[in-house]
Nucleic acid binder design. Structure first.
Lengths: 149, 149
DNA sequence: TGACACCCTATAGCTACTGTAGGGTCAAGA
DNA sequence: TCTTGACCCTACAGTAGCTATAGGGTGTCA
């Protein structure tokens, strides 16, 4: 029953590329499987489960680092699950933030788009004008040493 | 009036890092400026405008490739501006798509989070259970040659 | 003269893969 | 038996958009 899959079959089950699985193995997310006589990787059911778990985390937008944390928690089943809650909560916050950013962005783009008043040439294009003038950019970064006191 | 800024001052005006400006220059988004006797880059007003334009496009989520297209259109002021409209429209569509994806994701995460019923150990954690069982992943990719007919 | 902020080039690192080169394995068909 | 073709292997380069580091040079002030 503990099937013996080759990497291509595993990839198909998980809906990912063969290269992705080898990549996860290099990163230590997937354990190195046994090998056939011809040096082919051979996977069992636990590998299938683990890969599906990883892919599901990824499809929920988690990073590989977060996914690794969840896997580690999963491998220590007697720990309290508050850590898992926290990880998911943090992720929800990040997704919310990104969502708000994108919504603001969408609004700005629509405003920008409305600047085009059917003129004919680029020279008179309201969109380009807006892109040039508006806001003058966020001024977030600018890494230079602090001015001496 | 056509100021002569060093790269650090330009970076500060645009709210980006010095390295980012040099990176844009390597990519051809920023033209190579003149140099001082000591080989320092010296920028004028046109460079300031161009960098602000780029940063504004980036802050609107456009790729550098899209930004380059807009810059090229900008440099050919007699072309019809329909191309600009189209570029912005395409971008709006992509932002909308991403927004919808994120909203679906947020819903899934909240459902996932609600699986935790205040149990104590990871072993019994409903979140991990959901991550293992649910949906069995999208099965999108899986690149293998088509089965022979 | 020294200290320090700033600049230079070249190169490596980040995330999460994806793609390629150059080979080996394995099963089926001629 | 030989060949074909799908599949596998390792190692490495490439993607986007920066960011960081090493190892140097420049410019200004005390």
């Amino acid at each position: 029953m503990s099937s013996s899959l080759r990497i291509g079959e595993l990839a198909e089950r998980a809906g990912c590329l063969v290269e992705t699985i080898r990549y996860y193995e290099r990163l230590g997310l997937m354990p190195a499987p046994g090998r056939s006589l011809g040096n082919y990787r051979l996977y069992g059911d636990t590998h299938v489960d683990r890969l599906l778990f990883i892919r599901r985390c990824r499809s929920l937008g988690m990073s590989l680092a977060e996914t690794k944390q969840l896997l580690d928690l999963h491998d220590a089943p007697d720990r309290i699950c508050r850590d898992i809650d926290r990880l998911i909560d943090d992720h929800i916050v990040r997704v919310n933030d990104r969502l708000a950013e994108l919504q603001a962005l969408q609004l700005q783009l629509k405003r920008l788009r409305s600047q085009c008043h059917r003129v004919r040439t680029v020279k008179e294009c309201g969109i380009l004008k807006s892109l040039k003038d508006e806001g003058n950019t966020g001024r977030r970064q600018a890494r230079r040493r602090a001015a001496p006191a």
